[in-house]
Structure formats: structure tokens, C-alpha cells
Design a protein around this nucleic acid. Structure first.
Lengths: 215, 215
DNA sequence: GCTTATTTTGGTCGATCGTTCAAAATAAGT
DNA sequence: ACTTATTTTGAACGATCGACCAAAATAAGC
């Protein structure tokens, strides 16, 4: 049984893979998993439908790949921000939330339209129990880390309260990133809400959950 | 052109309508609009597929009907709670948020499993720009009312900041109601987070947005 | 009880879905 | 340049989708 020799993927292939992932990100973000068709994604990428399967595997695998791609980058940005901030001195709740939310907000604002699509994609993932394991694999480790850091700020805090507060903060962040389609409806500014408002809201909320439990 | 005489719908028909709406609520909540099929809904309701169209119209109309049914009840509960609380004395931010969230939390907890399904359904609506108009029609009027009440508490507050904070609070509430499938993953209690934690978080966050803008 | 409108059934329609595949085109290795 | 593996095309496959309809069953009005 001779080993079949593998060959490194061509550069053209790598470009196509990214084109397909970008297209999948946009289409999945707009219409969700079931609303998006392989043919829609292929058309958005400018390739044939069969090619999507060749590069992305099944539709579920493609979806998982799309979620995973930026999740890795995002986690690294968050953890790096945390280390840098820690080196600068003692951490506050605002520091921690800024390290967690800052990279996402920044990339969504100036990292190109793909990052904004990714935020909408994550909103779909969060709304569908079907992707529980996917979300747990890619988001929970970093979330757990930040929850632990937050809980460590207040020795008397109830860890479950802090975890709940963190979930609320993440939900608010996703709402902030995806509220573009609500613009104007509720008196929000044209370009959506300000990132500072989000941070103020979440810091105050988290600090409330950090307070020692009342008797 | 003789007017064709209408006939009142039979009671059996009304029961079937509700069975179908309940089934649609469950299936739409679990799999979203595109993931749910008319046949799935019909099977869950124990009727034939054609009957779903007869009672609910097109799939989109059925979805809209499903969203609208409890939205009406919910708005009324919220506005009633607001009037009752107002009669008891001057309102605080906590009062207002409790009037808005309380009915939902209460119905989700003890109003039967259908109300919990409805919360997941609303999460899908919030994640999909396709239902912008639907959400605006059924949720915005009441939301606007509560935003105005909140803003009135603090004359120096920026209305847009308050609106943003309210959107964050709603997102946190939906996360609270639908976080059952995250239970345990992040250290949350088995039965999900406590409603009190949600209210504490949101009150603190909203009060932060009510503070007069710094110079 | 007879008539009429409504409710329900069971099946079918064309369209579109995810997936597969053989063949053509392209690029890499020697 | 020749060989070989990979990438891409274009077209199919069966399954399932939303929607529709004629006929049967049921209930309401007289």
C-alpha cells in the first residue's frame, strides 16, 4: 500500500476557498442556515455549485467552517488585549469588558463589511439551539476566561450571577452590532448606537452582578 | 350581484386554528422560518398539510400570525402593569423595566411551554432582517412608550442613549428567556439564570444611560 | 330534513433543495 | 515536456419544499 503523495493546494485554490467562505458568511448572515442555499452562496462567490461542496464539504460543515474562521481570530484578539491591559496595571470591570468587546466592535467598524456580516451570523447561531455545540466549542472557552477574571474582581460575588451578567452583556453586544436594521425605528441615530453607550450599559450591569449578594 | 352570506366559523374550526398556531409556534421557534416546513407544522398539529394553508394562508402569513398572536396579549399586559404601577406612586427605572419584562418573564415561567417557545420565536425574528417590518409593527409602539417614560425620568438624558440602552435591555431579556440551551455551559444554574439577576443588570445599565451626558 | 357553506382529506404540481459525478481544465512535480 | 493530482465545470439524481385543487366529510341555517 503505497502512500499516495499529497500536494500542496494551489494559490488559486486558496483564493477560491476564501471567496466561497466570504460568500457563505454574507448569505448565511442574511438568511440563516436554512434560508441560504448552496446555489445562492455559489452565485455570490461567482463559482459553480459543485465547487462549494468540493471546498467546504457538506452545508453543515461549510457553516461550521464559516463560524470558526473568525472565531479563532477574535478569541486571539481578545486574549491579547487582556494580556496587554493586565501588563498596564490592575484590571477593572470596564477594562475586562473593553478587552472582550473592543476587538469585535473595532473589526465590525473598520475591518470591512465581512466582519459586520459575521456579527449577524453569530446572532443566528445564538438564536438556534441547533448550533449549541458549535457555539460552545468556539465561544465558551474565551467567555469562561473573562467570566473568571470578572468574578475575581469581587470575592463576595456569586459566580453564577456574574456568568448570567456576562451572557446579558454578550447579548447586548450582538444587539449593538446587528441593530443596523432597527435604525431609526426607535429613535436611534442613523449609524446605530455609539459603542460607548454599549460599554457604559454593560459595565454598569456587570458591576451590579459583582456586588455581594444581599442577605 | 347578490352578497354571499357569511357564516360564523364553527367552534371546531377555532380549535383547529389554535392547534395549528400552537404547532407553528413550536416548530418556528425551534427551527426558524426557513427550517420549518408546512408539513412539519401540520404533523405537529395532527392535521393535513393543506389545512394549514386553509387556516393560516401562506407560510409567511402564518408566521406573521404566530408572532402577532401573543404580541398583542403581551403589549396589553405591559401597558396594564404600567398603569397600575403609576397609580401606586412615582415611577423609577426599576419599576418601568419590571413592568416591561415582568409579564414576559412571568408568562414564560408559568404560562405554559408555549410562551417559552414564543420567546425563542421572537429571538429568531430579532436575528433576521427579513422580519424588520413585522417586529416594528408589533413591538415598537410599546417599546417607544417605555423609552419615552424612561427618558422622562432624567431631563438631562440623551434620548438616543436611552433608546440604545433599552435595545440592549431587550436583548438581555431575550437572552435570559432563551438561554436554556446554554445552561451549564458557562456555569449558569440548571434552571437558567434568575429573573432578579436580569432585572438588576438591566436597571443598572439603563440608569447609566440615563445619566446626563458628560461634557 | 334539506340545502348550503365550511372544514378536512388526500393527492399532485412545478420548483428548488443538497448532493454526486464524469469529464474538462488547470497547475504542480520531475 | 510529460505525468499526475487537483481544481472546476456542467449536468444530473432523488427528495422535499410551498402551494393548489377536487372530492369527501362535517356543521350551520332554514
Amino acid at each position: 500500500m503505497e502512500k499516495q503523495r499529497k500536494r500542496a493546494p494551489s494559490q488559486r485554490s486558496l483564493q477560491t476557498r476564501e471567496k466561497i467562505l466570504d460568500a457563505a458568511e454574507r448569505v448565511f448572515a442574511e438568511r440563516g442556515f436554512d434560508g441560504a442555499s448552496i446555489r445562492d452562496i455559489a452565485a455570490a462567490a461567482g463559482v459553480q455549485a459543485g465547487l462549494v461542496h468540493h471546498h467546504g464539504g457538506s452545508k453543515e460543515a461549510l457553516f461550521a467552517r464559516t463560524v470558526a474562521r473568525r472565531a479563532e481570530t477574535l478569541s486571539q484578539l481578545r486574549l491579547d488585549a487582556l494580556e496587554n491591559r493586565r501588563a498596564a496595571g490592575p484590571l477593572t470591570a470596564r477594562d475586562l469588558l473593553d478587552c472582550f468587546m473592543g476587538p469585535y466592535i473595532h473589526m465590525a467598524g473598520s475591518g470591512g463589511p465581512q466582519w459586520l456580516a459575521y456579527a449577524r451570523l453569530v446572532a443566528h447561531v445564538s438564536a438556534d439551539p441547533r448550533w449549541r455545540d458549535l457555539a460552545a466549542d468556539w465561544f465558551d472557552p474565551t467567555a469562561r476566561r473573562f467570566i473568571a477574571e470578572l468574578a475575581a474582581l469581587s470575592p463576595g460575588a456569586d459566580p453564577r450571577r456574574v456568568a448570567a451578567g456576562f451572557v446579558y452583556a454578550v447579548a447586548a453586544m450582538l444587539a449593538h452590532l446587528t441593530s443596523g436594521w432597527r435604525v431609526g425605528a426607535l429613535g436611534l441615530a442613523e449609524g446605530g448606537a455609539e459603542a460607548g453607550d454599549l460599554l457604559d450599559f454593560c459595565v454598569a450591569g456587570i458591576e451590579a452582578t459583582l456586588a455581594p449578594a444581599a442577605m
